[in-house]
Simulated assay, not measured.
Amino acid sequence: MGIGVWELLLLFLIVLLLFGTKRLRNIGGDLGSAIKSFRSAMSDGEDDKTGRTIDGEAVHESKDKT
């Protein structure tokens, strides 16, 4: 037994009445930009790191050596 279509529709209408369309649009936009920045930070973190293994030991090297 799970949540049906009618239950989801009722829940959506209650949330819409509580918050209003403008606030829901802002929340959706903020959530979308947060997910986008999280994904870009994760991919940037993978690109910046190079690693090599010496004698079973992981060694981290950074690309920019300042």
Rank of each mutant, 00 (worst) to 15 (best):
residue 40 S to A: 04
residue 62 S to E: 14
residue 8 L to H: 00
residue 14 I to D: 05
residue 62 S to M: 04
residue 62 S to Q: 12
residue 45 G to F: 04
residue 41 A to L: 11
residue 47 D to V: 02
residue 55 D to Q: 02
residue 29 G to K: 05
residue 12 F to S: 15
residue 28 G to Q: 12
residue 1 M to Q: 07
residue 10 L to M: 04
residue 51 G to Y: 14
residue 35 I to D: 15
residue 35 I to T: 12
residue 21 T to R: 09
residue 45 G to E: 07
residue 18 L to G: 00
residue 22 K to M: 08
residue 48 D to A: 14
residue 27 I to H: 04
residue 66 T to Y: 13
residue 2 G to W: 14
residue 28 G to M: 12
residue 27 I to M: 09
residue 31 L to R: 03
residue 36 K to S: 05
residue 61 E to N: 09
residue 49 K to I: 09
residue 46 E to I: 05
residue 7 E to C: 03
residue 62 S to N: 10
residue 59 V to E: 02
residue 14 I to G: 00
residue 25 R to N: 13
residue 36 K to A: 11
residue 38 F to Y: 11
residue 14 I to S: 01
residue 53 T to P: 03
residue 51 G to T: 11
residue 64 D to N: 15
residue 13 L to C: 10
residue 59 V to W: 04
residue 40 S to H: 02
residue 12 F to R: 11
residue 8 L to M: 09
residue 9 L to Q: 02
residue 32 G to H: 01
residue 15 V to E: 08
residue 49 K to N: 14
residue 28 G to T: 13
residue 8 L to K: 03
residue 4 G to C: 08
residue 55 D to R: 00
residue 12 F to E: 13
residue 23 R to I: 02
residue 10 L to H: 06
residue 44 D to R: 11
residue 63 K to N: 10
residue 45 G to N: 13
residue 37 S to P: 01
residue 59 V to Q: 01
residue 12 F to A: 14
residue 42 M to A: 13
residue 48 D to P: 11
residue 11 L to H: 12
residue 43 S to Y: 06
residue 25 R to C: 08
residue 51 G to F: 14
residue 10 L to P: 03
residue 4 G to Q: 06
